[in-house]
Design a protein around this nucleic acid. Structure first.
Lengths: 152, 152
DNA sequence: CTGCATCCTCTAGGATACTG
DNA sequence: CAGTATCCTAGAGGATGCAG
């Protein structure tokens, strides 16, 4: 709890919004792991180095295109490294760089939160969707839509 | 470091990829704070309750549309609460719910990381963009593009 | 095996105008 | 003041094909 207060304290150091912000750490975070696949890649590489196709198998439903692109972005930012083995069919190994390793702990904190609060969130959602209130407000939520399968 | 190891340990409990995953906490995280504005809203509300237009001023460059939508989604998930004061011109106050409050600490961890590693990342990026290597690989990175202004 | 290039779709999100 | 509805665009990301 007092850790959260400490967090709030720090928040106040940063300007919200982006136009005026000289450097917004929130944008940094989102640019890094806010996309669809980066976190998954990092998690996979956290366990052990992976080859290209190993990663493709590990993160089954990513396209080759996005796999390459995500890896390239992570490499560019220094989070992972890329080692080419000039063997017969070329082999490429990706592994977590120290910078990427330093991301593991904060990332895990967030994932744990999601895991812990999964239930509460779904409960809240059911409550919200179930409240007859105004249909308009509810419909306006993008992420709703799906769970409208309650009693008709 | 051993905290990171612990993190890795936990990672292995979750299936990567989403099709096969019964419940992927990574998706949960991204659905919650991976969008453009949620984190900013939460940070703003972490400091103190805000009215609609206060939020609009705090997060200057968000559109009214996205402001409403983001707030609605956060409300639906139980992260924030919404209190209507039926005054002359209606007033609406948003504040962090306990569930939202519980997100502050892990979120701050991530933001701190971004703040700490900002420099290293930019350095890595400059190094990557500066390496003559293959231009193709570099160009394939989406987020690059900008800094291709080196010597023509 | 690794991974670019091309094409195409779909949706997050901005701009604007209107209401209670 | 606090939304809502409509319209529209930019870009993320999938599918597929070719190449070293």
């Amino acid at each position: 709890m007092s850790n959260a207060s400490r967090a709030i304290e720090r928040f106040s150091r940063y300007p919200l919004g982006e136009s005026q912000s000289v450097h917004c750490p929130v944008r940094d975070v989102l640019d890094r792991i806010g996309d669809k696949w980066s976190m998954l890649m990092i998690m996979a590489l956290a366990m052990r180095p992976h080859r290209f196709s190993e990663l493709h198998r590990a993160v089954n439903d990513i396209s080759k295109r996005m796999l390459t692109q995500t890896l390239r972005d992570l490499e560019r930012d220094g989070l992972i490294t890329r080692h080419v083995f000039p063997t017969k069919p070329p082999g490429v190994e990706y592994r977590l760089a120290p910078l990427g390793h330093s991301l593991l702990e904060p990332m895990a904190g967030l994932i744990d939160w999601a895991d812990r609060c999964h239930g509460d969130i779904h409960a809240a959602r059911a409550r919200f969707d179930g409240t007859p209130g105004d249909a308009a407000r509810q419909a306006f939520s993008t992420r709703s839509k799906v769970s409208t399968n309650r009693q008709g």
